[in-house]
Design a protein around this nucleic acid. Structure first.
Length: 166
DNA sequence: GCCAACGTTGGC
DNA sequence: GCCAACGTTGGC
């Protein structure tokens, strides 16, 4: 039996630009980095179980002035164990994790396009069509979350990109 | 299994 | 710096 083509999937990831900005990703080797350090089970499940190579990623700057979407990226690898969980010197070392049964996973993400217009949180909130977007719901703190295909299209358009730019 | 205390996130 | 919201921890 053959599987039918997958529907396109989209995600949003958060990063504090003081820590790792979209420009940092853009200038990284192959414009790619391992998205390590995620230590939330719901976010872990998205990384480990749902993300696929080629999925679209909105790169969101949190803790920034202003916060908002800075660029788009793509999932560039299958998920694999986050090596920092095993490193006692790493900030996100997790002594509960075992190499034979890792707790935490990551994917590689690769920058695709910088948004011609940075899309501030304020602007996102003002867009009625995005009212249900997950990142805009009060109290949500996930650093990795799904984005609806329609929302992806609206965000790209607001940011000055077209669908074919991805 | 409950729930209070605590730590973290992240906008403002 | 403040604080609301949330996840985790640990006593019971």
């Amino acid at each position: 039996m053959r599987s039918s083509p997958r529907k396109a999937q989209y995600w949003l990831v958060k990063s504090e630009p003081d820590c790792f900005s979209f420009d940092d990703l853009w200038t990284a080797p192959r414009r790619t980095t391992g998205w390590d350090g995620v230590r939330n089970y719901q976010a872990r499940n998205f990384l480990r179980d749902a993300m696929r190579v080629g999925d679209g990623v909105l790169y969101y700057h949190s803790g920034a002035e202003p916060p908002g979407v800075a660029g788009i990226a793509r999932v560039a690898s299958a998920s694999y164990p986050d090596p920092t969980q095993f490193d006692p010197a790493a900030e996100h070392f997790d002594p509960k994790s075992r190499r034979e049964m890792p707790l935490w996973f990551q994917v590689d993400i690769q920058a695709v396009r910088k948004l011609p217009r940075f899309l501030s949180l304020r602007t996102l909130k003002s867009e009625k069509a995005l009212a249900r977007m997950r990142v805009l719901q009060r109290g949500q703190r996930l650093s990795v979350m799904p984005v609806e295909p329609a929302e992806w299209g609206i965000v790209l358009a607001l940011g000055g990109l077209e669908a074919r730019d991805f």
